[in-house]
Each structure stands twice: as structure tokens, then as C-alpha cells.
Amino acid sequence: MVTARHPLRWVAVAGVLVLLAMAASALITNPAWEWEIVGQYLFAPSVVRSVVLTLELTVMGIVLGFALGTLLALMRLSPNRLLSSVAWGYVWLFRSVPLILQLLFWYNLALLYPRLSFGVPFGPALFDIGTMDLIGPLTAAVLGLALHQAAYAAEIVRGGLLSVDHGQREAAAALGIPRARRLLRIILPQAMRTIVPNAGNEIIGLVKGTSVVYIMALPELFYQVQVIYNRNGRVMALLLVAAIWYLILTTALSIVQYYVERYYGRGRA
């Protein structure tokens, strides 16, 4: 019997193990990490509240972003030149301007339009409202995140729709299946195989991306730990608290993504 020997592999394994042990030791033995402080703040009510707000911003950003993104993707694929141009223009604009700038723009919209009115276009207004009253920091944050996200979502959904074999559309059309049903029952579920992994990236990106809204003094996770360490000076410990929460959130999302991908992969070897 011949046994394969991999002496170099064993050396590499030993080396990696030593490095891991050193890293663990550096984390545990250095008192400057202040693990007891980390433990003390990890589940502090103000921190947990900020985690909830982070989650809310993520969910609203993704749901609204992908809803608008799907609409944009369908417009972009429309044979109508005006619709596809508008969708193209939207993606171009909102992908080109940094998110932080967009957020500040929505936050300060009142400087441009002090009052917003709703009614007949170019006609009489039914009611109007002060911009500041309508768009508070939270609305500005959701608006900014969702509109920015929609530009990326549009491209992801468009890519997914294009990845579905043309024969599928033809078969569905030849069977006389109504247009909306064709999209929802035949095309989109197959497009999801391509959409989900990319959307997973986007959602995980957005969980962390919500930290940008700290500039609007919204008490999401990153802002909240800054508030705390500015008060007590435990900078590293509180940054670690934030890092641990981001890890937990993204890990949970990765697990969900695994099952969603498996669902949409059904019927494929």
C-alpha cells in the first residue's frame, strides 16, 4: 500500500497553528482590549437599541432598494427607448455620487426646497408640507440608502433576468401564459439563482454601509459606540463591541443566504 506523504503541508499546518495561537494570545493576554468592558457593553440597552436601528435601516434600504431596482431593471430592458434611457440615467447618476454625499443631500433638501407640495403636476397643490417636517434624519437616511441601493439592485436584477435562457420566455409565450405570470412564475424564479448571491453581497454590504449615516447623528450601531467611547474613553473596547455585532449580523445573513440559494437552486444538479 502506498501512502502519499505531504511533508510541506505538515510544515504549513504547524506554521499556521503557531500564528493562530499567537493571535489568540495577543487578543486574550493584552489587557488593553478590556474584554470585561466589551462584555459589559455588548448587551447594554443603548447598544441593543442601536443594533435594532441598524437592522431597520438595512431592511428598509434593501426592500425599498430592490423594489425600485426591479422596476428600473424592467424599464431598462423595455423596448421603449424613453423608459430604458431613464433607467440607465438613474443608475448612472446614483452609482456615480458617493453615498455619504447623497445622504447629506437628502438631509439638507430643505435648503433647496423649503416646502414640498403634492397635487396635480404643474397644477394646483392639494396640500403642502415643510420639507424639514417630512424628511427628518431617519427618512433622509432611508431615502438615501434605498435610492443608492436601487441603482445597484437594478443592475443585479437586470443581470439575473438576462441570465435566463431565451427559450424559457419563448416556451412560456407559446403556452399562452399571461405576461405578468410569465415574469413572476417562470423568469424571476430562475433569475433568482443569479440574483441571490449578488443580492447577498449587497445586503451584507448595506449592514455595514448603514454606519455611514452616523454623520446624520442617527443612533445606529456605529454612532452609538462613538457616543459611548467619547464619554468613557474606552475606544478599543467599544469599537470591538460594534465589530462583534456586525459579525453576528452578517453571519446570520450568510446563513439565511445559504438556505435561500438552496431553495432557488432546486431542480438543478
Binding site: A171, A173, R179, R266, R268
Partner: peptide
């Protein structure tokens, strides 16, 4: 579109590459 679809339901079409719906 609706009338065209109704006409199509009277006509079966079998493709060279089957075009079965793989997720169903």
C-alpha cells in the same frame, strides 16, 4: 396580447431544446 395568447393556447409547440421549466 391577450387575444394572441388565447389563440396560442389552441396551438401546441414542441421545441428542439425542450425548454421545460427547470425550477418546476
Amino acid at each position: 396580447e391577450r387575444e394572441i395568447l388565447r389563440q396560442r393556447t389552441q396551438i401546441g409547440f414542441v421545441f428542439q431544446s425542450f425548454n421545460l421549466f427547470p425550477h418546476l
